[in-house]
Design a protein around this nucleic acid. Sequence first.
DNA 1: TTGTATGCGTTATCAC
DNA 2: GTGATAACGCATACAA
Lengths: 348, 348
Amino acid sequence: MMKENRTTIYTLAEELGVSVAAISRAFDPNSRLSQEKRKLILATAKKYGYKPNKMASRLSMDPIRIGVLNFSYIKAFYTEILEGIRSAYENLKDYKIECDIRVLQRGEDQMSDALEILDEFLIKKYDGVIISGMYEECVVEYVNKLADAGIRVATVQYNLPDSRRLFSSLSNYEVIGQMAAQLCGMLLRSASCKKTVMFTGNHASPTHRTLIQSFRAASAENGFEIVDIYDTQDRAEVAEQMVNRAFREHPDIAAIYASSANSLPICRFLEKNGDARSVVFVASDVFNDLYPYLEKGYIDATIYQEPFKMGYDAFDRLFRSLADAEEVEEVVYSTPRVVLSSNLYCFR
Amino acid sequence: MMKENRTTIYTLAEELGVSVAAISRAFDPNSRLSQEKRKLILATAKKYGYKPNKMASRLSMDPIRIGVLNFSYIKAFYTEILEGIRSAYENLKDYKIECDIRVLQRGEDQMSDALEILDEFLIKKYDGVIISGMYEECVVEYVNKLADAGIRVATVQYNLPDSRRLFSSLSNYEVIGQMAAQLCGMLLRSASCKKTVMFTGNHASPTHRTLIQSFRAASAENGFEIVDIYDTQDRAEVAEQMVNRAFREHPDIAAIYASSANSLPICRFLEKNGDARSVVFVASDVFNDLYPYLEKGYIDATIYQEPFKMGYDAFDRLFRSLADAEEVEEVVYSTPRVVLSSNLYCFR
DNA sequence: TTGTATGCGTTATCAC
DNA sequence: GTGATAACGCATACAA
């Protein structure tokens, strides 16, 4: 077995007749080192194909401390985001990361509790903070306080573009709206009546505003007409009322797009109405209670945001930004998936 | 700033009055250590939530050496697989991995060249080997030789279930066939004529046999009829002949499913024939030349296998199996995606 | 600015 | 079986 020829700082130091410290410093832009020496080192490093081993380097450094605040809206959805964050942490923790995860629930906990936690993260001088599920204006100020202290903030699911967060990990709602429209169009292709209604979540959230706009814009080119849009306010009772009202006001509905996870009341309505099976129905998200309706054909397709991936990406990129000083794009999007009964099996 | 309280082997060693070596050994099942001591150590480790740092441990061990052999069939597809493998390597190389990647091309290189490389991997006593794009019977023997030498073998894209490979990273062709059928059914929903033809790649490969079977099985429940299946032999000229023949033999074709990446000749045919735009067309894979046909609407949907992910998963899991002695499922599937013109943008 | 020495968390080698 | 101790590849406090 041949002796391995790994090139390390020692190899380079010897080769160039400098100290290992010099080699090490050459790769840290904040480290003082003469221009020429740095240049020389970096050049020969490239020649040897040498890259510092992040593992070994992190080993001799202070741990990176990351705080996570999850203010859950729809529980299942945010659970998946959290699982993504945890999974990324699990994959990266050998790099000496400490992770402080706090989970609050809208309804049970108050916004003030959430903001208090952000202040706690500030006091503890964490290196990075991930905020998920918060879009309210009042959060901006807290994010900026963190940023002022040199703490890098990532947001998940909501953008907070007016804050000084480092980046956001988001669903691409513009694309989702277009996909929903195209699916409706495809399913209505040879249909005679193409009247379509949309059921949204809470109109107040930026999410649904984008979805409405995008779905509406794409309706024409996909050859159908949106006759009405109903706000379910993300509450089951309201959704139930709305679906009844919709079919009363438009008895000849040909297609439905539900842009929120609040689609079960609609499913139940369709199930009760015998011939409603022929109504085209495009839903959102993937969760347990939805499965039977996809399998029975009440739902034709649902669009999945992959919240796990959103959480994973947020943690992963925040770490890389912290550890490698890697540049991060301001927004990273998850790629929405079309889920049908035929591939549902892959998601359960 | 508080002093950090990381628990390490030293913490535990001190706590239990044993040496750090003992702690280390406790986590290696092959290491000799008295039963009671091991038990005690493992118990208190759990109490402290201690897990050995894989990073630091790999640092003091010999590098893990992995050989990769890519025998490309469709170039674009295998390039993506390779990129996935490279990306996983990039993410994991801090764990002291050495990676020897060999790329051959069917047509230019011979099977014997490929097998020779496997023998070279054997002689070099690599720890793991990844084989991608090889399904022929003769490969089995070589895989088994590697396995005999204690080398763990993973295959990508083809299964080789009769060999003693450790696991395979595959597309789920059964699901893909069902998805294609459901998409055809959806697009034909209100159509009067539902005659469908299928164009496959090389019938010889296990891939297309599965796809045909799965697509055929799902056609009935999706309400359409398969009137013919044409083998394009994965060659453009043949595909061109076949599509001409298909429309000659069945002038009233309502839908087409092309299960191989060899779908461009079909696109061109449809483009030439004025009213062919109304023919339902479900294609396979995502690559540059396909974009315009999706955008113009000749292709309604294409099913993407995410070869990048297949390569990534293969490398990632092989490493974990090697480094952590983690159990690996025998088969890991990528999750096929539905790509439409509306979300095509996410893939280019 | 530059070099020396030490530590990071773990395994391997060698003694006992 | 068990315990010291030298690596592993790198960053940094400290000294020069």
